[in-house]
Design a protein around this nucleic acid. Structure first.
Lengths: 337, 337
DNA sequence: CTGTTAGCGCGTTCAA
DNA sequence: TTGAACGCGCTAACAG
């Protein structure tokens, strides 16, 4: 393995000089810089990031923490896009990222986790899909032992950046669009259209925001609103749709999986009313649900999140980043290429 | 940060002694071992794996190479399970794993990739879903610069282990089961039932094996067999089903995604014949395809693959590992909990 | 069985 | 502007 020493020798300079041009330090003549770069090329040298990390005491390593629930394989797309987006941006920024699932952290204390991550040279963490129930992770974040970026959760301090879409606005828009696009589904003679909103899990940080958006839409459109919590469970959303959805004109769901559950439940009862979801995953179309959702661009969110992590490691302060979203209609024909 | 030196001092022994108990070396008295362990506990010491890797020259780090195609989000489950399985077993074995997608390696030469991985301290690679078309990766494997485990591809040398199911047998079984379970779908008066087999991509290592299994089943059951290549494309499988499937009694597909494409194409034409897939992903059930597939247990395969990588790093020779498979019927009700 | 010592490859003072 | 030297935390001979 060719090391910095070989490069130095080959270029006829000192090791430290090579290190300086590698790290773009000032105070290096163009001439020597060229010499070094030529040597690097000729020897096909690649810096050893392990050694660099050990020496500099900051690895620039980031851990991606997420919780793909084993039971809901249909939603894997979300996590895959998170991972793809995060790794792409890590690669681009030249920092390395490791993926850590909550399941690997089970029955570990905050201290255990901190030590584990430290031993791995982790300097920053990016947390996806945090819920208030995940106490350990929440404490981990609040300990601020690492530079932290949280996706879809309201934490912002000097060391914590928050990234996510505006869930209130997104839910508002998708609800309005769904109701307005389907005026015919209101029973004739009915005074006000009725909407069943199947919200997520109360403990989830996004739930309150989305519910607020739904309420705003209901007020503006003067529709009567019933709210139930489906806990992001497809089965539970199905039950709710069967019972509470019986006399409603619209069902609006806080997740695609719940929308699928609701639609399939309705099919059994023979009813056919507009249902909309939220996440914009391909599964919707496969499940035969041609309906509105919010396109969340998980890839972009994760991509940005890692960039924000890098920003924190570079000494900048935490901040809140609001990502754009857009409303789309998922259709099978758009999926199959 | 508390280091090995602190532990040594605290325990009143030499640094190397601490290192020895850390790495379970022989020739250490129980007494000193206890002293050291106590010190470790008291100081809350965590070994720095970065330093260990630098010093020992073998990081035990493994890179997971895979190629989740961005267009087929429905099949993300496969990659998620690969990742989950691999990371779980890496965590269990105490080695760290990084995930690398083919897309991150685009327009890099074998040399570039080797250097990149080396710079990351990668010692072993696990390659998922290799196709003969991916020349660069194939060359990377054959260079044998890293300990290598390939999933579903026929490479075995002293430094390369191959892990996967028996695709011939699996395809044989699922085909037989599908045909036997649906005797009624054969047109009355017809001499021999006819089967359309939509194979994968010719360049894929699994394709030949699966096709062999299909042929064997066709011979045994005395059915006439037509073979077309769907290239694992849902759309292409749809076209094939529409055209070539028009007069067939069964359609058997080499992947779930193609099965879904075929089923949806058939729906348009109003025909309803048995169709089976292969991978056993949840999407099948969501897509309303209640049909046979091979349950491949991607999680288990990846889990095993990483263990095999560890085995290679421990100095054992490469070998072939055949994983079990089983045939299941995917139904929506089994998916939704 | 335990301790001493020499690196691993690199970043970083501090003199020159 | 350059280079020599030290140390990051640890492993691995080797000596005792």
């Amino acid at each position: 393995m060719v090391s910095i020493k070989d490069v130095a020798k080959h270029a006829g300079v000192a090791i430290s000089t090579v290190s300086k041009v590698l790290n773009n330090y000032p105070n290096v003549t163009e001439t020597t810089k060229n010499k070094v770069n030529r040597a690097i090329k000729e020897l096909n040298y690649v810096p050893n990031s392990i050694a660099a990390a050990l020496s500099s005491k900051h690895s620039g390593r980031v851990a991606l923490l997420m919780d793909p629930v084993r039971e809901t394989r249909g939603a894997d797309q979300i996590y895959m896009e998170y991972i793809l987006g995060a790794l792409d941006s890590a690669r681009e920024l030249g920092i390395d990222a490791i993926t850590v699932f909550f399941s690997m952290l089970e029955n570990m204390t905050v201290d255990d986790i901190t030590r584990y991550l430290r031993s791995q040279g982790v300097q920053a963490i990016v947390v996806f899909g945090l819920s208030q129930e995940t106490k350990v992770i929440r404490n981990l974040i609040q300990e601020e032992d690492f530079f932290t970026v949280v996706v879809d959760a309201p934490f912002v301090t000097d060391g914590i950046t928050s990234v996510g879409i505006d869930h209130t606005e997104a839910q508002y828009q998708v609800a309005v669009k769904t109701i307005k696009e389907n005026p015919g589904s209101v029973q004739p003679g009915e005074s006000a259209p009725s909407v069943l909103y199947i919200a997520g899990r109360g403990a989830d940080y996004t739930t309150a925001d989305r519910t607020k958006g739904m309420k705003k839409a209901a007020e503006e459109l003067k529709v009567s609103l019933s709210i139930r919590y489906g806990d992001f469970s497809e089965a539970k959303a199905g039950s709710i749709a069967r019972v509470t959805g019986r006399d409603k004109d619209f069902i609006i769901c806080a997740s695609d999986l719940m929308a699928i559950g609701a639609v399939n439940a309705l099919k059994e009862t023979g009813r056919n009313i507009p249902v909309c979801g939220f996440d914009g995953i391909a599964l919707m179309a496969y499940a035969g649900c041609d309906m509105n959702t919010v396109r969340q661009d998980f890839y972009e969110i994760a991509n940005t999140a890692v960039k924000e992590a890098k920003r924190l490691m570079d000494g900048e302060k935490g901040r809140q980043v609001v990502m754009p979203h857009r409303i789309v209609r998922m259709a099978y024909s758009d999926i199959v290429k």
